[in-house]
């Protein structure tokens, strides 16, 4: 091998500089971590979920540390799609990174409303439909765990969007392959997984729930083996690309997800531990490829299948 390995990946016709993205909800709209890193150096920023109107989310406490991970019950607090378009998108476009916008709602029509608003907007490279948040009472997880509903909402978003549509799946299901196939049948351009695993933490001294919502979504290195297994299963069940996430904290973790079948990966909780981690993972993947005499990162995708 003579030159630098090729790091570019492509999903539904969108080319990403490298396979390292941010996981929605852990990176705001890029502004906060844009003070620590150059956002152009990562594959894409996936913005925090946006709804048709502002959502206030759940009361505090919303976060709790757990062994090698954390629970959250933020509840998708967000300023709504209009503020996103006026304030956050211009910043992201200016930053020069690829932009994936995560879309949330309580019912299909709310998702469609956001998708229609984002349809054709310059600077949005892809939509990620969040049918897997465990912290909202309606929508979120309840839509993403029924294959019929999932196919319907996928098709509904697909026909309203000019951009590629990626569906973000929940791990809180019996068989992830069924959900992946439902997305593919609905016309999804890609799927991303996993969202958080539903969990709970109880304060034994005070004998009460730690989180205001009692339950929360578990993320971080603790969930990585579950996520790798599900990315493996889902990517073998469908022919559309998979973006893998769940506890990625270093380049080896990212490579593991790609070997399992992911075309790209997203980094979530690890940003809270190290604001430079995404850049370090990009560099680490490059070094891995050099060390293994691999000249194109795409050779990793599903290599263990």
């Amino acid at each position: 091998m003579s030159s630098e390995p090729r790091m570019e990946v492509e999903i539904a016709g969108v080319r990403f500089r490298n396979p390292v993205m941010t996981a929605s909800g852990t990176f705001g709209s890029g502004m906060e971590y844009g003070r620590f890193i150059d956002l152009r150096e990562i594959g894409a920023v996936t913005a925090k979920g946006v709804a048709i109107v502002p959502w206030e989310g759940n009361p505090a406490p919303r976060v709790a540390e757990t062994a090698s991970g954390m629970l959250n019950c933020i509840g998708l607090q967000n300023p709504g799609v209009e503020t996103f378009l006026e304030r956050d998108l211009p910043f992201l476009r200016e930053s020069g990174t690829r932009v994936i916008v995560n879309v949330c709602g309580h019912e299909p029509d709310e998702y469609y409303g956001v998708v229609e608003r984002l349809n054709g907007v310059p600077g949005i490279d892809m939509l990620e439909i969040n049918v897997s948040c465990p912290n909202v009472k309606a929508g979120g997880l309840t839509l993403g765990t029924d294959p019929k509903m999932l196919e319907e909402i996928t098709a509904g978003c697909r026909k309203r969007a000019s951009q590629p549509v990626m569906i973000k799946l929940s791990p809180n299901v019996t068989d992830i392959r069924v959900m992946a196939r439902a997305c593919e049948a609905g016309g999804a351009d890609a799927i991303s997984l996993i969202n958080t695993l539903m969990g709970m933490k109880i304060d034994t001294e005070r004998q009460t729930f730690v989180l205001s919502n009692r339950t929360g979504g578990l993320s971080g290195p603790a969930i990585k083996p579950v996520a790798v297994r599900m990315v493996y299963e889902a990517s073998r069940a469908v022919s559309i690309p998979v973006v893998g996430m769940g506890g990625i904290a270093c380049a080896e973790d990212a490579v593991e997800f790609m070997l399992a079948g992911a075309t790209a990966v997203a980094v979530g909780m690890a940003n809270f531990v190290n604001p430079y981690v995404t850049i370090e993972i990009v560099e680490g993947i490059r070094n891995y490829l050099i060390r293994h005499h691999i000249d194109d990162v795409r050779e990793l995708i599903g290599a263990v299948h």
Binding site: E32, P54, R62, P79
Partner: peptide, 29 residues
Amino acid sequence: EERMACGVGACLGCVAKTERPDPHSLVKN
């Protein structure tokens, strides 16, 4: 004081109820 995760404003894990819409999400959190 509140339980925090990111510490930099990205995760919305630590919120305080406010009287007027907050500058980030416009929702009094």
